[in-house]
């Protein structure tokens, strides 16, 4: 039917624009059918609850009940209490350090899988994800069993006469190692997914043109896969900033984190309003972290065809 009207009206007439707009409308409709449910789901299931948290953070809790009298006390407590400031700075430093170390380790392994994994690439990536089949608590307990005072590492060292290594027991370093353990697969997978779409022939071109491998990496591989790096950093930084379990089990007394304190407000102490304020704070800190990532990493060249277009 649409085709018929073209032949009657000829090109460049109102009939053509009519078809174009009806095609566009159909595209819009299909887009809404495909992406609409997911987008709506995110709005209802995630954004509304987050909005609720923001509202509650201005309320007041008394004996486990929320009362809607608007005030800023929660934020005053949060900013005034030195303990909270220490928890926050500690979490921030930990998240930054763990993200960096994950980045350094994840790049070579993701690169190896993408370039040299051959037909086993998918299996090698899934091997990175498979530890997640075992619960976080169990894995952390097992790490504790390996690193702890009566763990395998220290027992072996004791047998050799070196004595237990204090650094691995209930210290921030142990907590950092635990976080690295939990999150390095995320970083590696994100970088791998980017590299899987990377055209490695570009490196051959660079080589032919006389670039050393290192220079080819800095000028081609890294910038063109910046999107993977950025997503990896976000995937590691955000949960590390909020993490509570790892510090609780591995960190000892000097590793109390923002997440631990936040979980406490919704658990033992039941101060939901203060907890909500901490949640808002955590979210803002996460956003700040993301902005830093966006600033540092140039995403403009990171398009999948960036080099070809430029």
């Amino acid at each position: 039917m649409a085709r018929g009207s073209v032949s009657k009206g000829g090109l460049g007439t109102s009939a053509m624009t009519g078809i174009r707009s009806s095609l566009a409308r159909r595209g819009q409709f299909r887009f809404a059918c495909l992406a609409g449910p997911g987008a709506l789901f995110i709005v209802v299931a995630l954004l509304l609850p987050l909005l609720a948290i923001v509202v509650f953070s201005f309320w007041r809790t008394e004996s486990y009940e929320l009362y809607a009298d608007w005030n800023l006390d929660n934020y005053r407590v949060l900013l005034g209490e030195p303990a909270y400031r220490i928890f926050f700075l500690r979490s921030l430093a930990m998240a930054a350090a763990v993200s960096f170390v994950c980045l350094v380790f994840a790049w070579p392994i993701a690169y190896f899988i993408a370039k040299h994994g051959g037909r086993y690439r998918l299996l090698l990536v899934l091997l990175l994800a498979a530890p997640f089949f075992t619960g976080v608590i169990l894995r952390i307990t097992a790490l504790q069993g390996l690193l702890g005072p009566i763990g395998l590492v220290n027992m072996a060292l004791a047998e050799l006469g070196i004595g237990p290594v204090g650094m691995l027991m209930y210290t921030p370093l142990a907590a950092g190692l635990g976080l690295f353990y939990l999150f390095v697969p995320f970083m590696a997978t994100a970088i791998y997914l980017s590299l899987a779409n990377f055209n490695f022939e570009l490196l051959e071109v660079a080589k032919i043109n006389g670039a050393r491998p290192w220079r080819a990496f800095v000028e081609i591989t890294w910038p063109l896969n910046a999107i993977g790096t950025a997503i990896g950093l976000v995937l590691v930084f955000i949960p590390c900033l909020a993490s509570a379990l790892t510090q609780r089990f591995l960190g000892g007394p000097n590793a109390t984190s923002l997440g631990m304190s936040l979980a406490q407000q919704f658990g033992e102490t039941g101060t939901w309003a203060l907890g909500s304020a901490m949640g808002v704070f955590l979210f803002l800190a996460s956003l700040a972290g993301i902005l830093v990532v966006r600033r540092t990493i140039d995403l403009k060249r990171a398009g999948f065809t960036g080099a070809l277009g430029a």
């Binding site: 995110i42 995630l46 609850p49 987050l50 609720a52 948290i53 997503i231 976000v234 995937l235 955000i238 949960p239 900033l241 909020a242 993490s243 509570a244 997440g259 936040l262 979980a263 919704f266 907890g275 909500s276 949640g279 955590l282 979210f283 996460s286 956003l287 993301i290």
Partner: peptide, 12 residues
């Protein structure tokens, strides 16, 4: 959701 920690999703 990538920008929101699990803990925050849980409590909110």
């Amino acid at each position: 959701p990538l920008f929101v920690a699990d803990l925050l999703i849980g409590i909110s």
